[in-house]
Design a protein around this nucleic acid. Sequence first.
RNA 1: GGCGGCAUAGCCAAGUGGUAAGGCAGAGGACUGCAAAUCCUUCAUCCUCGGUUCAAAUCCGAGUGCCGCCUCCA
Length: 472
Amino acid sequence: MLRFMNTLGKCLEDFVPIAPPRVGLYTCGPTVYDHAHIGNFRTYVFEDLLRRYLEFRGYDVHHVMNITDVEDKTIARANAEGIPLHELTARYVEAFFEDIDALGILRAHQYPRATEHIPEMVEQIEKLIANGHAYAQDGSVFFRISTFPGYGRLSGMDMDGIQPGARVDCDEYEKEDVRDFALWKAPKTGEPVWQTRLGPGRPGWHIECSSMSMKYLGASFDIHTGGVDNIFPHHENEIAQAEGCTGAPFVRYWLHSEHLLVNQEKMSKSKQNFYTLRDLLARGYPARALRYALISVHYRKPLNLTMDALDAAAAAVERLADFHRRIVELPATAAAAAAGSNRVVDAVRQTEQDVTEALDEDLGVSTALGAVFDFVREMNRILDESGVSTEDRATVLGLWRKLDDIFGVFQPPVEELSSELLGLVRQREAARRDRRWKDADALRDTLLDAGVVLEDTPAGTRWKRRRAATTT
RNA sequence: GGCGGCAUAGCCAAGUGGUAAGGCAGAGGACUGCAAAUCCUUCAUCCUCGGUUCAAAUCCGAGUGCCGCCUCCA
């Protein structure tokens, strides 16, 4: 039974979709004013694992991720660069897709953008005004929190405790109550303006997610996710907006991922520990190693990213790739043997069961990966001792494909070698055959300098790309 | 000040009452012409101090440290 830690209620709950096998999944996406940083991707990778695992468990997931292309930061950045908003956001939307592709994150089924859903937001705001949950003031529209008794339930915030003055800044907008939040913002110089039935202005941030999620997933849907910092106020406000509008329960399961730390500290540009994906790729870490590092820690635990940890992740991924290559390239002679057949079948079955049990429990990914590495060791033992039959190999590769569908880090990319380098490999094989060890070793060194590592096996010499040097 | 998260070997990290998964790094060994890959062996008593219990990393209390939220930061 699949279970999730639901932020709403703070306990482990059995996962029961509203209309199985369909699952509506909404994940809070990027604000496209700059490159996303590696902490953002921690969340996106978690959401990718969630989606992939739901699919593995037979659910028909409909995944929607919003793109926030109009809010304070995007406007400020576009103004600073002196370019139109859409030009700025188009640039970073493109970068975002490049990055998630590099990390092997599956594309959502839809990426609705705020600027393309102004009418839907206006309509929702009108409903909220009509039923008394919202009020217009000085050209803006605010949500009236006092009319929504459930406010604060998701975050556990006691709204009565928040009083004007102390820590709460009254912003430039006049509101009935400082706790009220903006649904629609009156026009200001230097800001984009939409002419709507509400008057001119632009949407507040929170309204886009409730409008767009309900448009594509319905008034009530299954799962909504984001980083922990979104719990309050963003998701709290979404609930108020949605339920205040429809009267129906908005979301069944709220899942939130913890933040990523760098060297046990919060990432910040001033501490010079702020990394985008591109920064880390430029340091030579393979994208798959980064994905592994981001995925291998449970999503509700802070992830402490260090360069040592990334080196370790790169090595772990290589161990998995080495195993995959070994099983794929298994020579026919060894593949004909079948002494280990029962062990293979047992190991495959046990591994699939262990991985499923672990992930069923709120995506217990560390335990699941532990089971995978146990499997790799057992299979390597079998391969050392007896080899496997062609049939068993197919069974193993079948499991491997399933695991890769879930984790997205097990199937190594196909590597190619230039004909010159391949020629050197052949020359060295000839040298070894003639026992010209010095020549053979010199050729091996040459290839190593070219980034090619050789492995001599009873069935011949294999080559692979050297793991990128990643020091400092 | 209010609310919440975390603290396990050199590093990353599982485990939430019965004598510490897994990965990386290290040490020794097997295999190898030498390597690489692989396998075997080895490497912690769980932040501190109290308490509950036959039994605690795991429950309770008090500390210490780090991180986050408290109006728009994944």
